[in-house]
Design a protein around this nucleic acid. Sequence first.
DNA 1: GTATTATCTGTGTATCTATTCAGATGAAAG
DNA 2: CTTTCATCTGAATAGATACACAGATAATAC
Lengths: 134, 134
Amino acid sequence: MGSVESLEGCVVTAVHPEKVRLATAHAPAAEELARVSAVFKLLGDPTRTRLLYALLEAGELCVCDLAAATASTETTVSQALRLLRASGVVSGRREGRNVFYRLSDAHVRLLLDVTREHITHDPRQAAGGAEEEA
Amino acid sequence: MGSVESLEGCVVTAVHPEKVRLATAHAPAAEELARVSAVFKLLGDPTRTRLLYALLEAGELCVCDLAAATASTETTVSQALRLLRASGVVSGRREGRNVFYRLSDAHVRLLLDVTREHITHDPRQAAGGAEEEA
DNA sequence: GTATTATCTGTGTATCTATTCAGATGAAAG
DNA sequence: CTTTCATCTGAATAGATACACAGATAATAC
């Protein structure tokens, strides 16, 4: 059993030091990782997820239509859209009194599709149980 | 301007009723949406994201190695792994006293890759500013 | 059997966050 | 200019959650 210097300098036991060094070497930088997890966190709220799937289907919707489509208040929708827009997940276009929102790029659409497929193809993680398959 | 019955029965104004109906018709079911956002929420914590990228690089790591690779305590890592395992994002394999964890399937790997690419190709959403491109 | 190591789990606390309400801003109509 | 409508923003509150500590469980060594 080897030992590796962790980032804070304290020595901890390691079963596979090479793999640990490999992981730390290729790990995303702090700022990059923060942004990645920030995007996932935005997608991790049911209200926002509902908005995004509505935009995925309709292509473009204004705030009041999004509120109707997701059965939320317009204020809640507006607050959610503010966060999504601030991180570039959605973008808004003003047309008269309405602001129409759409998904920013293909990456977001892919994330929504892949995760939905992941869920439907892996019905294990329902409410609690999620052991190995077979 | 038309009007649509929202899910709660109250009538709200709608700019594009057809699009709203399209979105509501193709919207994920409540349980499916809950599971999708639950997966995203799991990926939305920096500590867990770090663990997942470590597993993405190393393929398989035990708890103490993950703690070393991510500069966290073993307790924190274990708590994080419990949530990830409960939702089927990672899976564990016991070998003697160690438990080795790995990413469950290709979907998770794809999510991590796509989002990292999304971040690096879209340097807009740094700390605050994220207006339209161009 | 006891000792030791690795991982897991219960509990408490401090922090964050989603939602709501009230009011502000921007745009069009009269 | 005043009114009306759509959207936005600030503040307060209730609920969720990540981390740390202490102790429990599992597996090997002696």
